[in-house]
């Protein structure tokens, strides 16, 4: 049952609760870096990496420090602090031990330090932790959710890079050229993700 619920959480994070297209977090990199496929993939990999790592650290901090103290309201401030510090640490470690990965992630790693999608993943997952209901997120669920959110980010970025590639050669009215048509296209892609609503949710109570 645990595995089934983990799969359900993973799928939900990618499809029904896609952080970019359903929760509208991380729109800035979504519009900014999706012009080219390779930068889109590079950014997404960095985001996934940071999301999982931040959740791995912030979840225990919330559970074992903030909740016992009754200081849940500090989560926003503290999470930003922790994520920023963590990204710096990861950067130092990568530069020393895996310079090739450091070079390929390049500017994206420091860029996403305070990305709202990363903060959103770490904070929104806490709402799912409610021991009074039949199904509550554990630490494992939170990690899988973060990984799924990153993959969902990747899916959205890659899809949108394709859409933008088509827009390049399309005959667009002058008034819509550039950002306007990009936003319209983003809205349509987001609309298509509405089709997944209710697709995975049913799995979770059964788990």
């Amino acid at each position: 049952m645990l595995i089934k619920s983990l799969v359900a959480v993973f799928l939900a994070a990618i499809l029904t609760e896609n952080y970019v297209l359903s929760k509208f977090l991380g729109i800035c990199p979504f519009l900014g870096v999706s012009k080219k496929l390779n930068t889109a993939v590079g950014m997404s990999v960095a985001v996934t990496f940071v999301m999982v790592l931040s959740t791995a650290v912030t979840f225990p901090i919330y559970t074992y420090v903030l909740v016992p103290m009754g200081m849940e309201y500090l989560q926003t401030v503290l999470f930003i602090l922790v994520i920023a510090g963590l990204v710096q640490l990861v950067e130092i470690v990568l530069r020393k031990y895996i310079p090739s990965l450091y070079n390929s992630l390049g500017i994206y790693l420091p860029l996403i330090t305070t990305n709202c999608a990363v903060l959103g993943v770490t904070m929104l997952v806490l709402q799912k932790v409610d021991s009074t209901t039949a199904f509550t997120y554990t630490y494992g669920h939170a990690l899988v959710n973060a990984f799924g959110a990153g993959i969902g980010f990747l899916v959205a970025m890659v899809m949108f890079a394709g859409v933008r590639g088509r827009l390049e050669s399309a005959d667009i009215p002058k008034s819509l050229k550039g950002l306007p048509i990009t936003l319209v296209a983003a809205a349509l892609v987001s609309l298509s993700f509405l089709g997944f609503a209710g697709f995975v949710d049913k799995l979770i109570p059964l788990a």
Binding site: L78, L81, L89, I92, V93
Partner: peptide, 23 residues
């Protein structure tokens, strides 16, 4: 105290890491 403590801890870890793993 919590924010300052965690901030201090992260700062310490970062400064130690940057010395140990200096390129």
């Amino acid at each position: 105290g919590i924010v300052a403590g965690i901030g201090l801890l992260i700062g310490l870890i970062l400064s130690v890491a940057s010395i140990i793993m200096a390129v």
